[in-house]
Design a protein around this nucleic acid. Structure first.
Lengths: 352, 352
DNA sequence: TTGAAAGCGTTACCAA
DNA sequence: TTGGTAACGCTTTCAA
């Protein structure tokens, strides 16, 4: 580990002073090792199909020349890029970041790289990303949710590669869908609040545009009210972008419309924490005067005062499962159901 | 936007029923358009070097055949991948996620894709990532900080591509370094706390392993004490990973060692927010009994009660500037200084 | 276990 | 403005 040292101050001028350069090819390695190029290729791809002695000579030649393989050539010839494309709404929400990291942690040791795109919650942007990324000939594609433009679906269908939709379970996957049911989770939380005796429950949800997660959560909330015979009123719902700032603002809106609310279900912990902080600022007792429930179980939620009742989504497990499934598919190994529900957990804490 | 529809239930079986498939090449497009392949290539790369009529015919052929270019072939031939590698410690910290998104927002419209890796704050892992990614022949590489293994530096030097180190300014960049001085910022915050009259200032910092940002912050804190003639004592420092949970724990440790502390400077808002929440839980008045300052200006910091005094780092500007600089370099346009300091802002709020 | 030749789909080079 | 030919560096195919 060094932070300084004898580095060249003019990187552009780094010629082959040490006899190595970046245009070393497999052929050069083969020549130095005294073998054919194909043997070098085999030594790199399937080390066990080459004698230990040959492998040693090749390894030495690689080290001596500073050889770096050129994956573009391999991809062209083999039609295998070892690239997996993953598209998420945003990377700023650590929910998705953690899922991506979990996927990457499985894929990288297997030699696959994740090419990540973010849509800003726009299906049109997703389509543009898919179109652009397909030119890289990815071996597989992972999308968030099941709401896509028809052309996105068509492009992926024609690409004939594994496609995994994630996070939110829907009825008719393009190929495979892995995640949990936002509807079920939201319904469970609504039932819980009702069971706890809250009479006037407000809902702060995300924007619905191109977002089946937020749509399912809102639908689950309404279903919960209905099955309990509670009248639903559009005034009970406020929608806001997933930011801490909007949680507080949204609570203000909601309380203006529902001054008698005794509980708030926020469809994301980012919003719910914003709500809690706003309550703190306004001196609203939680859960005494107003109960607060969230969704996601973010890192901060358990540290709040009071700690937040929320839905835990297995976000690392989703990433891991998707990556493993993808690797199995690409290796031709048998895979299971096309719809994989990894479930959720209702975490009961003090806030509701 | 559709969430369902007439999708095939057996994607593996999608043959060329509609006459289009994914093995359409530029040659097929050329044939249908009645031109040479090179003209198709030109129409795609430099639309202005082709007559409008030719371009129209080619566009029609592309649409009719559902042609998707193969970038692997182009990369092989031209040695231009239009891939930029970016390596960060973690994507879970939204600080880095926002910088990555800002970079991506500039690079994508220019036809470049970001290949992202995360090191988990390990220089050895960074080296492994760089070695693996270089096989994709990226057009440029972006690293976080200036602490790298010698082999990482050597690999990048040999690759002869633009390398931009980011976030933390250091004296001797591999090539170009863009960010701010964590040392200066930390020193400024320490001076601020001293000026505000706090006598016994504790410090909660990140782990130092392979992390020049945390090291500079700690050094800045010590320098601030020293220049004010305050005695430094190792007991004043607690180090913890950047997680909400550790902020609270670390505060406990610190107060055991320094029961008379009247201020805490946490080297990350994640820790500082954890500290604030812990104070809330323990009934410690902020800033009356204990002042709290942070670093990063995370989204939640301004919403806390009291709102958090912190250092604002221009994280989106860093990403944008890096991307623009990278594009300029790759286009052969002149670029400025090798060290670009985008500065910071001390945000004075109520917590300290 | 090893190798020779062919070819992947694109773009550089040179010519018309 | 357009095109023919060659070449990028690897892996597949077939053969020894």
């Amino acid at each position: 580990m060094t932070s300084a040292g004898s580095r060249s101050r003019t990187p552009q001028a780094n010629a082959d002073a040490d006899g190595t350069n970046s245009s070393v090819t497999m052929r050069d390695v083969a020549r130095l090792a005294g073998v054919g190029t194909i043997t070098v290729s085999r030594a790199l791809q399937h080390p066990d199909r080459v004698t230990a002695e040959t492998r040693r000579k090749i390894d030495e030649a690689i080290a001596a020349l500073g050889y770096v393989p050129n994956l573009a050539a391999g991809t062209l010839r083999s039609s295998k890029s070892r690239i997996i494309v993953a598209i998420v709404p945003t990377m700023s929400n650590s929910i998705f970041a953690e899922t991506l990291q979990a996927m990457s942690d499985v894929l990288r040791p297997a030699g696959f790289h994740l090419l990540i795109g973010h849509t800003g919650y726009s299906a049109a942007e997703e389509e543009a990303l898919v179109a652009a990324f397909l030119a890289r000939r990815p071996d597989g594609v992972i999308l968030t949710g099941y709401t896509h433009t028809p052309r996105t679906v068509e492009l992926l269908r024609r690409a004939r590669i594994p496609v995994i939709e994630m996070w939110n379970i829907g009825p008719d996957p393009i190929d495979t869908i892995i995640g949990m049911s936002s509807y079920d989770a939201s319904l469970a939380m609504t039932r819980y609040l009702i069971r706890k005796g809250y009479r006037r429950i407000g809902y702060i949800g995300g924007l619905l545009q191109d977002n089946d997660r937020t749509a399912q959560r809102e639908a689950g909330f309404r279903a919960g009210l209905e099955e309990a015979g509670r009248p639903f009123d559009p005034l009970m719902i406020v929608r806001a972008p997933f930011e801490f700032e909007s949680g507080g603002t949204a609570l203000g809106d909601l309380l203006n419309r529902m001054p008698d609310a005794d509980a708030v279900f926020a469809a994301s912990d980012i919003l719910a924490v914003g709500v809690l902080l706003e309550c703190l600022g306004r001196g609203i007792a939680v859960p005494g005067r107003l109960a607060v429930a969230g969704f996601d179980d973010a890192g901060i939620s358990s540290r709040m005062t009071p700690p937040l009742t929320t839905i835990r989504v297995p976000r690392r497990a989703i990433g891991r499962t998707i990556a493993e499934r993808m690797l199995a598919r690409l290796a031709g190994r048998p895979t299971g159901e096309r719809i994989v529900d990894l479930g959720f957990e209702l975490i009961e804490r003090a806030s509701a």
